[in-house]
């Protein structure tokens, strides 16, 4: 599993073209990968094949790969969907701890998550923009309340 993360980091650093020195001796890559795994609490799974990991952890690995590329923009489509709550909490912590100059676009239905993070929210209904604004504006918006935040009844 470590390989998955290391491959991305190696690609970012241009190490992937190197053909002579063994990959596991490129400690600058493996160390960084291990560090990344540690921040996502994946250290104990470093040598487990990804296919043997529970789904929630696989999602974490995907995020680790993405973070390994040191992105400027991070697009996340329901990052916590299908992830057990203890793992999803970890995802949120990591995202919250990212440097502020990374732009993150999250598509999410979980309103708790949305309001915890978002600096700007765009509400979409049936493929059209309903309203756009700061979290407090959105939370106060009557129409959004009807569509998303309101009672269990759906239109």
């Amino acid at each position: 599993m470590l390989d998955n993360v290391a491959l991305g980091i190696a690609e970012r650093d241009g190490v992937s073209r190197r053909m002579w020195k063994p990959a596991s001796k490129h400690s600058e890559i493996t160390d960084e990968a291990m560090q990344l795994l540690a921040t996502l609490a994946l250290t104990s799974d470093a040598r487990t094949p990804v296919k043997d990991l529970p789904y929630g952890r696989q999602r974490l690995v995907e995020i680790a790969i993405a973070l390994g590329l040191k992105p400027k923009v991070l697009l996340l489509d329901e990052p916590a969907a299908g992830v057990p709550s203890q793992d999803s909490g970890r995802i949120l912590e990591v995202l919250a701890g990212l440097p502020g100059d990374i732009a993150i676009l999250i598509i999410e239905h979980d309103m708790d998550l949305v309001f915890r993070f978002a600096q700007r929210i765009t509400v979409l209904v049936q493929g059209q923009v309903l309203v756009e604004g700061r979290p407090d504006e959105i939370a106060a918006d009557r129409r959004v309340r009807d569509v998303y935040l309101g009672e269990a009844t759906h239109a």
Binding site: A6, V15, M19
Partner: peptide
């Protein structure tokens, strides 16, 4: 052998 153990080899497997 050197090649398959190298980052290049890992990348190929990827």
């Amino acid at each position: 052998r050197r090649m398959i153990y190298s980052p290049f080899g890992a990348m190929l497997t990827g």
